[in-house]
Design a binder for these strands. Sequence first.
DNA 1: AGCGCCATGTAAGTGGTTACATGATTGT
DNA 2: ACAATCATGTAACCACTTACATGGCGCT
Lengths: 179, 179
Amino acid sequence: MDVKTVCLGMLTEGPASGYDLKKQFESSFAHFFAAGYGSIYPALASLAEQGLVDCEEIPQEGKPDRKVYCISDAGRQHLLEALRNTTPCHKIRSEFLAMLCFAHLMRPADVEAVVEHRLDEIGRYQELFAELSDCMGDWPAGMKFVLGFGKAITEAKEAYIKENRHLLTEEWDAKAATG
Amino acid sequence: MDVKTVCLGMLTEGPASGYDLKKQFESSFAHFFAAGYGSIYPALASLAEQGLVDCEEIPQEGKPDRKVYCISDAGRQHLLEALRNTTPCHKIRSEFLAMLCFAHLMRPADVEAVVEHRLDEIGRYQELFAELSDCMGDWPAGMKFVLGFGKAITEAKEAYIKENRHLLTEEWDAKAATG
DNA sequence: AGCGCCATGTAAGTGGTTACATGATTGT
DNA sequence: ACAATCATGTAACCACTTACATGGCGCT
């Protein structure tokens, strides 16, 4: 499932521009699927070329024409087929965890900084989830499930990090205490 | 932090071949950083070219020469610098969650299959964690922290999915009950 | 005066994936 | 017999990232 397919899926909720979709990638999708303009605009262009979306150009003064995309019947069909893959993958690439594997080679202050930085990110996700909770009344069940998943896992991460961060600097703490 | 840097980090624990490193990517690193031979071998070749690792070729009969890599002083230096970046990123790209956002467009049986498949994957991680727990006695603190993180988060995922999967098929269940 | 929002896109680059190529040894 | 393990690599491909390019409007 690539950016194209996700865009197609988002368009089932109604017509939208590339700019609109970006906002959705930054809000409800932010915790599990990132995409920038550099992926979204080419994706929409390609979908339009394949006839999977229709594009309405709305002229605007002083700005580029606003291009509003609308999923077509062929697009709906295509999406349903993509949605039949029952083995989607859940990929994680964490530089955070990779770094901490080598915490013993780092300066303790840097380890602390890395942990703080991660907790900040987690805090920002939690703010986001709080905002989203207020407007999810009419969301489809799947979206609610996914938001709940993000919330639960983010909280689990926060709890684990807070409870176990002391393990990362224990060696130095021990040295500081005895030496 | 790319594959090259992680390989360099792994080599601080002792000399190893590309094949050895792959096994580590499949065990203790599997839950947060994937890499195949297609990334590892070129990474090691590039590290050797930069003088960050030394390579000893051990001739073997019937097999390609075993190339054992050993981190050099320059490599250690380079790694320490890479480890000073205090804003490592934690990337997730989940086709699983992306699909479930559109669960209402899927066939209920397919939704079930997707959930089962994910639970299977989670189960395999849990087996892996159990194996790893038996041999982590002499691991550095960071590795233990990271393993614990994986365990805790994987359990949180399992619990959330099991407790909330019913939300995904509720619409159909309701229809089935009344109609 | 300056920032953030709206609004589109391209071009070059990167980093990783997939498929291919080879082949002996050891266990079942 | 057959599969798994050991053991290396390359070449083509792909999807995405980053940096660039443009520019008016509204708020403070």
